[in-house]
Design a protein around this nucleic acid. Structure first.
Length: 919
RNA sequence: GGGCCGGUAGAUCAGUCUGGAAGAUCGCUUCCUUGGCAUGGAAGAGGCCGCGAGUUCGAGUCUCGCCCGGUCCA
């Protein structure tokens, strides 16, 4: 930020805030006696600004106003703004697929970033309103742990966006005067506040490098809505008025609904039936008066400033006239009920829009939410059906967001699966801790970190489980702080990634893409616009597809008169397409060339690309509606498709997807390709067009396979699915939790693959002299026989060794008091060990040195009788050195060897010598 | 996206640091004890130590790659 908060504050003066309404109505500008912020009011002796803390908490609780429930509030706001010249647009998904920089939609304005705000495309309407469901599961806004404790925080909420866009070419927009006028009108006429009850607080909003004034409307100790006017940005460090000035009013719809109902918390306002259900199942009832007092005070909790609310809550308990522990006992279950309701709502919404709980990205936040539901349920021993809980929230959401109920089945499936996973984790956690407790009663920080990081067992769980065993475990109070330091240390050691050197263009050219016109054409003529470094050619039009959208570039030739150049790479820079040539070239600007792409390669790439579209939908058919494309890669030889899925894909499912895909080929479905404006495309086909991820630009190339798949895709595609020929799915792999990769072959490579598989089968069956279809049975038989024989050999070896060395069938030699066996024999290490140990078994003074060899190596084994005091290990070590290797062992058994096979005779002699010396 | 941990008998896990005969408990089979059952006793079966390379005379153990599962952080 090139400008400080203080400088910003000085920048905006009275005239920047004094809108028409203030003048007309006679609002007075005052400074808050508590926080010093400026505010506008109609009440001359009002001293404070109206913010919750300056007003001493929520004053609207218990005050029934318009009494609008969640859905009525959406309707009320929508109707009002439509009546006042706004267009109501459909809300966007909560999984923000049109944006690369965030996973969840976190504000209504996010719907229009970056394309609309950058002026690249027009807004769908102007002005407009949109009831945008937003997700905030982490970060500065709401620590998940505090949900349910503050009366007002939610992980998902509707930001009812009221937006007006102002730029030179746009019409219909309005600015501050009209905005505050509407605002005031809604609050007074629709919500029923009297003008004197409303205060507007001045502020400065800044974000994403932009900033502007804002006016917050307060009443009864709460912020009702923030009116943000994004007017300025920076250019070369200097403040600059934006080309596109935007009104960003985000009505906290849930809070508005709460305000009109005056319920103790926001949760009763938006999902009363869920709370009622949870309370009823548990026969839990909480004193309404106490709850009200508690909520009024909890509005003062400084969640945004401190992460750990404990200190503040202890104070709060004091104000309620009870101890902290009493407060937790009485209100804990209630807080848990609130949190459970909130989490179930967020999970239902996000899963419906295609997110999946996992161990990466936003999915991890979802997993945490689900686990918190279960953990809270257990902590307070709450009785309820998780299925019913989700059903209730799905029903609630479906009134205003009907798509949610269409995903009921997957939501239940995913929740169920995740619940099972969690219980497995906990089960193993319990075992691990119990094992540790057997061994010790003190846990080091490192141990705790390991338990937490690797097994998901937090220190609190350790403490609890220890308690069950009547053990007191000390857990550092600052565990999480220490942990963060530990992480910070680790992070320091990581390195940055270096950027690849890129070609920089001084000037932008327009290369017209011919590759969309007729994808089967391969020859074209074009004019040379520029050549960079004698190697990168820019044409006025081209048939060469540049790498992009997960599709690899074309190759081919460019010919000028008799000279032929090979195109080895094609890339897109803005609207220019660069052809990298293999040879240095001396073409002049303005000359006309003929180009020819490698048609065979292009065809192979198109087959793979179109196949990916076909398979994507097929996967959706087979696996469920939660399937989204999470990435893809298309080349001449193969394609990869990553899809969102909550578990591994089985072989059967993979074959089903393959079968369904090929059916679409047999059905010869037509594929149409058109260019559409982004807003039009979104309106007509919805957000499913963003399967391929973020697609830049105003115009989208829409590829649709007849009644099968529609995507915004910049790649080249066949005209008919039958041109794919054949699709073969070669494997699936879970590349990370929640994402499965499918490997796809299309056309010739698919056929080659199948033939290769057949060859493998034929070769394998030839080895076993059976028909291919008998292979599994035969292989199984062979494997079992091999196992049996291995066992037989082992027991026979043992028997042979026993026979060989019993009854003095093998004679020992006396060296001193020792009975010594030194022999060359045969067999591997295992056999030798058996022989040697048998040899010394019956001789109290027996030692045995055996040697065997194959072409490459010598194996040496030494053994002594268990009772005998003799260092056999040294003997073997020395002998092994002669053999060019080394050896070792423990006590009664020594093993060694080497690679000098020719030294066997020497070793046999040396063995006795060494033993003789050691007596 | 960045880490970390794990994969050994049907199950739960030791063994891996420091390379040298693949272990324990439960379960299973058979037998003994008993009128019968619980129990008790004895014997036994059951292992591609996830897969593939490498280092080594020798790898469950060390190195690298891959597969599978778990977990934490952003």
């Amino acid at each position: 930020m090139p400008i400080s908060g203080k400088q910003l504050k000085e920048r905006f003066k009275r005239e920047d805030y004094e809108v028409k309404l203030f003048k007309e109505r006679g609002f007075i500008r005052k400074s808050c006696s508590i926080c010093n912020h400026n505010f506008w009011t109609l009440v001359s002796d009002q001293e404070t600004c109206g913010d919750t803390r300056c007003s001493g908490g929520y004053q609207f609780l218990g005050k029934k106003g318009k009494n609008l429930n969640f859905d009525e509030t959406i309707k009320s706001l929508t109707d009002f703004f439509v009546k006042n010249g706004h267009t109501a647009i459909k809300d966007y998904p909560v999984v923000s697929r049109w944006r690369a920089d965030m996973e969840f939609t976190i504000a209504s304005i996010a719907d229009f970033q970056p394309w609309v705000l950058e002026g690249i495309i027009d807004p769908p309407a102007n002005p407009l309103v949109v009831p945008q469901m937003c997700i905030r599961t982490g970060g500065e806004f709401s620590d998940i742990d505090n949900i349910g404790k503050t009366a007002r925080h939610l992980t998902s909420f509707v930001m009812f966006g009221q937006h007006s866009f102002n730029s030179e070419k746009l019409t219909g927009g309005y600015w501050m005067d009209r905005c505050i006028e509407l605002n005031f009108k809604y609050l007074t006429e629709e919500i029923g506040l009297i003008p004197e009850e409303i205060t507007y607080g001045e502020g400065i909003w800044s974000g994403g490098g932009n900033f502007g004034p804002n006016l917050e409307a307060f009443a009864y100790g709460t912020e009702l809505v923030n009116n943000v006017f994004i007017a300025y940005g920076f250019e070369n460090g200097a403040v600059k008025k934006l080309d596109m000035q935007v009104i960003d009013v985000g009505w906290g719809l849930d809070r508005t609904s709460w305000f009109t109902q005056g319920t103790p918390t926001i949760y009763e306002a938006i999902f009363p039936n869920v709370i009622e259900y949870l309370q009823k199942e548990n026969g839990y009832k909480v004193d309404q008066k106490l709850l009200m007092d508690y909520s009024k005070l909890s509005g003062l909790l400084a969640v945004e400033e401190v992460k750990d609310l404990k200190e503040e809550r202890i104070e709060l308990a004091g104000k309620l006239g009870m101890s902290y522990k009493e407060m937790l006992d009485i209100l804990g279950p209630q807080e848990a009920i609130y949190a459970i309701g909130d989490h179930a709502r967020t999970l239902s919404m996000t899963i419906a829009d295609g997110a999946i709980p996992s161990n990466v990205g936003g999915g991890y936040n979802l997993r945490i939410l689900l686990r918190r539901i279960i953990a809270l349920k257990e902590l307070y021993k709450l009785q309820f059906s998780v299925v019913k809980l989700f059903d209730l929230q799905i029903n609630n959401l479906s009134i205003s967001f009907p798509r949610v109920k269409e995903h009921r089945e997957e939501i239940h499936k995913i929740v169920d699966l995740e619940t099972k996973r969690y219980s497995e984790t906990k089960k193993s956690g319990r075992r691990i801790i119990n094992d540790l407790l057997q061994k010790k009663t003190e846990f080091s920080f490192k141990t705790l970190v390991n338990l937490y990081q690797n097994n998901g067992i937090n220190p609190l769980m350790v403490k609890e489980l220890a308690k069950e065993k009547n053990l007191e475990i000390d857990v550092p109070a600052d565990f999480y702080i220490k942990l963060e330091e530990y992480f910070a240390e680790q992070k320091k050691q990581q390195e940055g990634i270096e950027d690849k050197a890129e070609i920089q263009l001084e000037k932008e050219y327009q290369t017209y893409p011919l590759y969309y016109e007729n994808v089967y054409e391969s020859q074209f003529t074009a004019e040379v616009l520029d050549i960079i470094n004698n190697q990168y050619l820019i044409l006025d039009k081209t048939m060469f597809y540049p790498t992009g959208g997960g599709q690899i570039h074309d190759t081919g030739t460019i010919q000028f008169k008799d000279k032929k150049y090979h195109v080895v790479d094609v890339m897109k820079k803005g609207s220019s397409i660069l052809h990298k040539l293999k040879e240095k070239c001396d073409l002049k600007k303005g000359v006309s060339i003929t180009g020819e792409i490698d048609a065979k390669r292009r065809m192979a790439i198109m087959r793979h690309h179109t196949a990916v579209h076909v398979v994507n939908r097929a996967a959706r058919e087979v696996l469920g509606r939660h399937i989204w494309q999470a990435g893809a890669d298309k080349t001449e030889k193969k394609a990869r498709l990553d899809i969102t899925h909550y578990q591994s894909v089985s072989t059967e499912e993979l074959q089903e997807i393959e079968y369904t895909s090929n059916k679409i080929i047999f059905e010869k479905r037509e594929i149409s390709k058109v260019n559409l404006d982004r807003d039009e495309a979104e309106r007509d086909y919805g957000f499913q067009i963003y399967q391929g991820g973020v697609v830049p630009g105003k115009t989208l190339h829409i590829v649709s396979i007849d009644e099968w798949d529609i995507e915004a895709c910049g790649g080249t595609h066949l005209d008919n699915t039958s041109d794919i020929g054949i699709i073969k799915l070669t494997s699936s792999e879970r590349i990370q939790d929640g994402v499965v990769r499918l490997d796809i072959l299309a056309g010739e490579p698919a056929l080659r693959y199948i033939q290769e598989q057949e060859n493998i089968l034929k070769k394998s069956s030839a080895i076993m002299s059976v028909e291919p279809k008998m292979l599994p049975k035969t292989a199984k038989r062979f494997f079992n026989e091999w196992k049996e024989q291995k066992k037989t050999i082992e027991s026979l070896t043992k028997k042979i060794a026993e026979l060989q060395y019993s009854n003095n069938s093998t004679k020992s030699e006396k060296i001193g008091h020792l009975d010594v066996f030194v022999q060359e024999t045969s067999g591997g290490q295992k056999e030798l060990i058996l022989q040697a140990t048998q040899a010394v078994k019956h001789y109290p003074n027996g030692i045995c040195v055996l040697i065997s060899s194959d072409n490459n190596r010598v194996t040496l084994i030494g053994a002594r009788n268990k009772e005998l005091d003799f260092d056999i290990v040294t003997v073997i070590k020395e002998l092994s050195e002669i053999a060019g290797g080394s050896g070792g062992g423990k006590g009664e058994l020594a093993i060694g060897g080497g690679s000098s096979v020719d030294k066997i005779a020497t070793i046999l002699i040396q063995a006795k010598d060494i033993i003789r010396k050691m007596i």
